[in-house]
Nucleic acid binder design. Structure first.
Length: 629
RNA sequence: GGCUCCGUAGUUCAACUGGAUAGAAUGGCAGAUUCCGGUUCUGUUGGUUGGGGGUUCGAAUCCCUUCGGAGUCACCA
């Protein structure tokens, strides 16, 4: 139970205290909380702060309050005191009647509901999705579900980065080496095909850059642009003079960047971007074609992950936005212009830096676009909250975005929330695209389903299942394992993903929860007439386990609502696990063989409600529950 | 170097936002089970919450300090 939501308990305690001590007592002096599992009782009154009213030690204060309450209301059936904590026990009848009416429902009163946008996924169209994107997608989708369960009006948005130099790279490589290859002709999934040419570009670039570099070292500057020469010369000299290893590494990486920019290939890419911005028809056609391949591929991945969106935005359409708003900011003197005509905002009074909003040539940067899309979206959607699911490497960016919009006087900026999440590592270490240790999303999904298949076959309980149902079961198990494993971790934290551990049938895993659910289903199927037996309260023996399970079930709505406030699927996942674990340990004996039919009926009822809650929570984190396994 | 985030059993994660004896899982160890050095049960082991100070009835949680790790400080997105 949530003592603070129980309408009668707090006022009862309050008035009791006042008459007990004949003093007026401020209501915030009363701290009532759920009783921890290891103690007996339902609600706990913390009595340390109350001793100033009683003039006695907390322990004695608690004792006398307990005595007093016992005589005031018969719903309070007992109490015990541990170290100044007063544990109040409620009548078991109270819990039974609660169980009868219990439904897993987390919806808020309509006055507390609001419209929320949640942006997630937001992929680049030059390579397929990887493990990091999986965390992003699962988080976004799950948070959306959780908010919706509370009754909020949720808009799921995907802002696709379909524009920029990185796309041009894939396009050029495909033109040079593709020989007209298409997803249809090659049988390669569209996003993987485009990704392949992105990698191809990088290979060609490395080769060209090596040539340019060695030419420069032989003082043959070739086609290197005049304006780039001084910078390169300066860097070369610095590198020779530096002894510090770290510094040397940084300088070398700067140099690499500069030299890469001077290769013919990069020049081609930049020219292509210019053509694209001028809407050159051949370029646009190729761009559209290759992007359509990518979308086809993404859609498959989204579908197998079970995520979806209400609305798509494309950067090719939004990248021009924001300039007008920056202009208005200038007029309002929130922004300022430097001598070279570039536009900045000064956030140093907020503990942040100065940030560029428009380049000296008047073109926009990432921040400008984001400001633009934020404003346009607010005009379209009128949400109270805007949640961005984006990796924590962009923490700074979103701070700046919010502060800037606030300074410009947009009220909706207060509702911006950056749901920042940490990287996903593998047991073998960090994913690095350079070293090819990136885990592809599609591969991972296929592997984990296959792993589910292998494990089920080892157990060998699958003989009577038709093949079709089996495949469906493996899919549910594999994805359930993946989703649960990723979502159970606090988003902010960097995490380690261990595929083999995730699919264990025991322990804190998705399949364990699914197994619990399936077990209850089979119990229900065999329950028969037990379903008809009413729970006879008068014959009910003391059943501490039942009381605990009902309390746990009751925590559903509170858990979901706090999870929604914190944007934290991890809270839901951990709640599910607790439910499944407790169910398994309390009801490890066969319910149906129980001699006391009344008790069996109670247990069955709890099993039913537990299954309901598990299924409900499952949908919130996108985990499907198999009816049998 | 400045700013931000993270640091909890050997490992992967919790701890209801300041509450009670810091909990699970996995690993380790011991026993039971047995076509098996596997599986499954049962028990057990494991912690100065990175270190040090402070705030108070009470700190993993809040403040200061220090040490580690990550990220970010682009006219890239």
């Amino acid at each position: 139970m949530n003592p603070n939501k129980e309408t009668w308990l707090i006022p009862l305690i309050h008035s009791s205290l006042e008459s007990l001590y004949s003093k007026s007592i401020p209501s915030d002096a009363i701290t009532l909380q759920k009783t921890r599992k290891e103690f007996k009782g339902d609600a706990t009154l913390v009595c340390f702060g109350l001793s100033r009213f009683s003039g006695k030690k907390p322990q004695e204060t608690a004792e006398e309050i307990g005595e007093f309450l016992m005589n005031v209301d018969q719903r309070i059936s007992g109490f015990n005191v541990v170290n100044g904590f007063l544990n109040i026990e409620l009548n078991f009848d109270y819990w039974l009647s609660y169980l009868e009416s219990f439904q897993p429902d987390a919806s808020l009163p309509s006055s507390e509901r609001s419209k929320v946008m949640i942006e997630y996924s937001s992929p680049n169209t030059n390579k397929p999705l990887h493990l990091g994107h999986i965390r992003n997608n699962l988080l976004g989708y799950s948070v959306a579900k959780i908010l919706a369960a509370c009754g909020h009006d949720v808009v799921k948005v995907n802002l696709i980065n379909d524009r920029g130099i990185h796309i041009c790279k894939s396009m050029i490589a495909w033109q040079k080496k593709g020989n007209g290859e298409t997803p249809a002709s090659s049988g390669i999934k569209g996003d993987h095909l485009v990704g392949k040419y992105y990698v191809e570009f990088d290979k060609m670039l490395t080769a060209e850059a090596a040539i340019v570099k060695s030419n420069i070292e032989n003082d043959n500057w070739g086609d290197v642009e005049n304006q780039a020469k001084p910078a390169i010369e300066k860097l070369l000299a610095e590198i020779v003079n530096t002894t510090d290893e770290q510094k040397k590494k940084d300088l070398n990486s700067n140099l690499k960047q500069l030299i890469n920019n001077q290769t013919p290939l990069m020049k081609e890419a930049r020219e292509m971007l210019m053509l694209w911005e001028k809407s050159d028809s051949a370029t646009i056609d190729l761009w559209k074609t290759m992007n359509s391949w990518v979308y086809e591929g993404f859609n498959k991945t989204y579908k197998s992950l079970g995520v979806d969106f209400d609305k798509f935005y494309y950067e090719s359409e939004t990248y021009i936005l924001g300039k007008d708003i920056v202009q208005q900011g200038l007029e309002k003197n929130v922004l300022y212009k430097k001598d070279d005509n570039s536009v900045w905002i000064d956030l140093s009074d907020e503990g942040l830096d100065q940030k560029l909003l428009l380049r000296s040539d008047g073109t926009s940067v990432y921040m400008t676009q984001d400001i633009g899309t934020a404003v346009v979206r607010d005009e379209e959607l009128h949400c109270k909250n805007y949640v961005y699911v984006v990796g924590n490497e962009q923490d700074y960016h979103f701070k700046v975005l919010q502060k800037t919009l606030q300074k410009m006087g947009y009220p909706f900026a207060d509702g911006i929330y950056h749901l920042s999440y940490g990287m996903v590592d593998l047991p073998s270490g960090r994913m690095k695209s350079r070293e090819g240790t990136v885990v592809d999303a599609d591969d991972l999904i296929a592997e984990i389903i296959d792993e589910a298949r292998k494990r089920s076959l080892e157990l060998g309980k699958t003989d009577e299942f038709p093949q079709e149902e089996l495949n469906e079961l493996y899919r549910k198990l594999g994805l359930g394992a993946l989703k649960y494993y990723i979502l159970k971790v606090d988003p902010r934290k960097r995490m380690v993903f261990n595929p083999e551990e995730s699919i264990d049938l025991q322990g804190n895993t998705g399949p364990f929860i699914q197994y619990t659910y399936a077990r209850i289903q089979s119990l229900i199927a065999r329950a028969g007439i037990l379903m008809e037996i009413p729970i006879d309260l008068s014959k009910m023996p003391e059943e501490e386990a039942a009381r605990n399970m009902i309390r746990l079930l009751e925590a559903y709505s509170e858990t979901i609502q706090t999870a929604a406030k914190e944007y934290s699927p991890a809270m839901v996942s951990n709640y599910m696990y607790e439910l499944a674990k407790d169910y398994n340990s309390y009801y490890q004996f066969p319910v149906l063989k129980e001699e006391n039919k009344t008790l069996a009926a109670l247990r069955l009822k709890i099993a039913l409600k537990t299954a309901e809650v598990l299924k409900e929570c499952g949908t919130l984190i996108g985990m499907e529950m198999p009816e049998r396994m």
